[in-house]
Amino acid sequence: MINENTMELLLSSFPKILEYGLKVTLPLAAIAFILSTVLAVIVAMIQYAKVPILKQICRFYIWIIRGTPLLVQLMVAFYGLPLFGISINPFLMAVIVFTINEGAYSAETMRAAMEAVPAGQMEAGYCVGMGYMQIIWHVILPQAFRTAFPSLFNALISMVKDTSLASSITVVEMFTRTKQIAGQSYNYLPLYIEVAVVYLLFCTILTYLQKRGENFLGSYGVRK
């Protein structure tokens, strides 16, 4: 059972763990998610529009990223970039790797969502005189984004937890901070359960935000 010392440790460590959650874990996930969504939309549009050469490059990018582990990608960036004289701080590097990683997955989500918009929507746009990019912007992307939103948010929730891998490239995020505290106290299990609860808390809030987001985006009058 939980003795007094453990209780005290849990209470005293909670603000420290939460601090790194709010200061590192959430910003890392949020920034990388936003950037990866922008990247995903661009990659999806290139494929949707079947732009020659660029399309092949996109397929290659998705193939590489989806076919290798995130942890390996982090390591390759960490040891590889300095060889090219690029030295950036680990947090920024984590943002870049997470963006590129998540971008590949979300690009496929967006592409599928764009392709799910009926062809008639494009034709109707042409027939009222609109150009290709105008139709993409006003008609296809909004509908695709609504379809992709739950999947994209799913990816965000995954990413919040995957940020713990950033510890491998010396980013001190929530999990690393927990390990440090645990190491000092030699009392591992309670602290790991505690950090699990904090992750769970974050993801619960995100799930709530997803629901709000879906309501905000609306469903274009479709009854749910």
Partner: peptide
């Protein structure tokens, strides 16, 4: 069109105005 092809993400009003505001 046979199956209308109204822009599903736009209101009736926006369906009519979009071709005017964006294309023209």
């Amino acid at each position: 069109f046979q199956n209308y092809n109204l822009f599903a993400n736009k209101t009736v009003l926006k369906n009519v105005t979009l071709g005017l505001t964006s294309a023209r």
